[in-house]
Design a protein around this nucleic acid. Sequence first.
DNA 1: GTCTATAACCGGATAGAC
DNA 2: GTCTATCCGGTTATAGAC
Lengths: 229, 229
Amino acid sequence: MAESDPQPPSKGERTKERIVAAALELFRAHGYEATTMRMVAEAAGVSLGNAYYYFENKDLLLAAFYREVHEAHVAEARPLLGKQRTLHGRLLAVLQSKLVVIEPYHRFSALMFRSAADPESPLNPFHPAGADIAREGEALFADALAGSSTKVPKDLAAELPSLLWTYSMGIVLYWIHDRSPGHQKTHALVERSVELVASSIKLASNPLLRPFRRKVIELVRDLRLPSPG
Amino acid sequence: MAESDPQPPSKGERTKERIVAAALELFRAHGYEATTMRMVAEAAGVSLGNAYYYFENKDLLLAAFYREVHEAHVAEARPLLGKQRTLHGRLLAVLQSKLVVIEPYHRFSALMFRSAADPESPLNPFHPAGADIAREGEALFADALAGSSTKVPKDLAAELPSLLWTYSMGIVLYWIHDRSPGHQKTHALVERSVELVASSIKLASNPLLRPFRRKVIELVRDLRLPSPG
DNA sequence: GTCTATAACCGGATAGAC
DNA sequence: GTCTATCCGGTTATAGAC
């Protein structure tokens, strides 16, 4: 997204692009498991071995897919953020747009978590290949926060983006298991939990709770796991 | 554990037992991925096809493994609970004993999450095969709570076991990604977060926070996803 | 009908030639 | 960079034994 490519794409780059495109289309049509590397290779017009030359394993293709989903989320959320000034409204915009964007992929979104939880997987936020998306996700929450009318103490503001991103991952995990029609339970969860989160953030500024707040912030700060960047 | 088996084990039951035993030993020695079904079958003295007669898939063997780990956890935690009366001390006992028990399996514990996040997997808490362990985990926290000197309002007490269990899963997820020597970061997280959790529970009884507390409790109660039981 | 075995399938991944 | 051939392991089909 933020890349500028002055060079024309080399042959290899174009082949790689074809493979990604084929994979994304097949993932959308059949889901991840049902899409075989052989299918991807054939659809891209390359041999199986050649596909593996570009993508060490199938998960890395999935990472490309998640990048696309993430970018669709940003594209969906930005304009909505333009219309909201309250913290509550802005968080709601980010989360609801997320649900809208991922909705078509419910059947295989579990994979995101399968991989996100696995330290070896390129999709987990502590793996180089997955770290970008996680950081950009945090950036979106940083925006939501920065543009809001709610004043947040500095020390808290520094930690909130990653906390909110973690919270949003929790929502997605709930959504994955949500079998209610139209995933209405998840939508209810978003509406109601966003309210609580927004209240909590305001509550956290209350002087009475200051010692407690400090402890939480210090905990989060001290124990953040190193990212591979 | 709570089963009484008046019948002597049938031939099939003994075979099944041999397969589990072989699998657990191999898992411990080589990890999950490196253990093939063919190895398990051979170690158990049965054919590959026969192993699949007893265990539809490899994940179900892993479920047996997690059951064993869970029971070791209970065995470790119970006596410690006998010595602690404060909520803080009791929660600490449950969580620290958990870390002790799972320590040998760090390299392949990620699998628990891979599966726990996957709605199709027998290991996730919403799947019948995994639900037992989750419920027993909650029961352990219910005990920790019930035996403590801290008074907890009834409505909160009803929700706390599952909330605490979820919290403990969060700790395990952190532990999985923790690369610090001796997983000292996770130990620090446990010590410090238990303190915060215990304070939060006390805080939640504060009349000033009552409306907030009610909202959280109602949210949790209304949006609990149905378990397959 | 409960159990066991052999052979095969399928798909992710790799080796090595061109 | 690209291919073909092959490996390897989870899983299944199926036939027969107890």
